[in-house]
Amino acid sequence: MHAHLQRMGRYNRWANQRLYDACAALPAGEFEKDRPAFFRSISGTLNHLLVTDRIWLDRILGRPFGGGKVDDRPFPRLDDLLPEREKLDREIIDAVAAMDDSTLAGITTYRMMTSPTPRQVPTALCWLHMFNHQTHHRGQVHDQMSQTATPPPSMDLIYFVYEEMA
Results as ranks from 00 to 15, higher is better:
residue 149 A to D: 15
residue 146 S to L: 09
residue 41 S to R: 01
residue 118 P to I: 01
residue 93 I to Y: 05
residue 160 F to Y: 15
residue 38 F to H: 14
residue 14 W to D: 06
residue 77 R to C: 09
residue 116 P to H: 04
residue 42 I to P: 10
residue 19 L to W: 03
residue 162 Y to K: 05
residue 73 R to C: 14
residue 147 Q to H: 13
residue 138 R to A: 12
residue 45 T to D: 13
residue 117 T to Y: 06
residue 18 R to H: 04
residue 129 H to F: 11
residue 1 M to A: 15
residue 10 R to P: 10
residue 28 A to I: 00
residue 77 R to F: 09
residue 156 D to F: 01
residue 154 S to I: 05
residue 103 T to V: 12
residue 123 T to C: 12
residue 43 S to Y: 05
residue 49 L to I: 06
residue 58 D to M: 00
residue 138 R to P: 02
residue 90 R to F: 09
residue 28 A to S: 07
residue 81 L to V: 07
residue 125 L to F: 07
residue 166 A to P: 06
residue 78 L to H: 07
residue 106 G to K: 01
residue 145 M to F: 02
residue 118 P to A: 10
residue 95 A to W: 00
residue 87 K to C: 14
residue 157 L to A: 09
residue 150 T to M: 10
residue 20 Y to I: 14
residue 143 D to W: 07
residue 17 Q to I: 02
residue 26 L to Q: 12
residue 122 P to V: 02
residue 161 V to M: 15
residue 4 H to W: 10
residue 27 P to E: 03
residue 16 N to Y: 05
residue 155 M to E: 14
residue 152 P to C: 05
residue 100 D to P: 06
residue 100 D to C: 00
residue 59 R to E: 07
residue 102 S to D: 14
residue 122 P to K: 00
residue 86 E to R: 03
residue 81 L to R: 10
residue 154 S to F: 13
residue 134 Q to T: 11
residue 5 L to S: 12
residue 49 L to D: 07
residue 163 E to W: 00
residue 76 P to N: 03
residue 108 T to M: 04
residue 83 P to D: 01
residue 69 K to N: 14
residue 59 R to Y: 04
residue 45 T to P: 04
residue 35 R to A: 15
residue 133 H to N: 08
residue 157 L to F: 15
residue 99 M to S: 08
residue 156 D to I: 01
residue 89 D to V: 02
residue 130 M to S: 03
residue 85 R to D: 13
residue 125 L to Q: 12
residue 91 E to P: 01
residue 48 H to P: 01
residue 126 C to N: 09
residue 14 W to K: 07
residue 152 P to W: 07
residue 119 R to M: 15
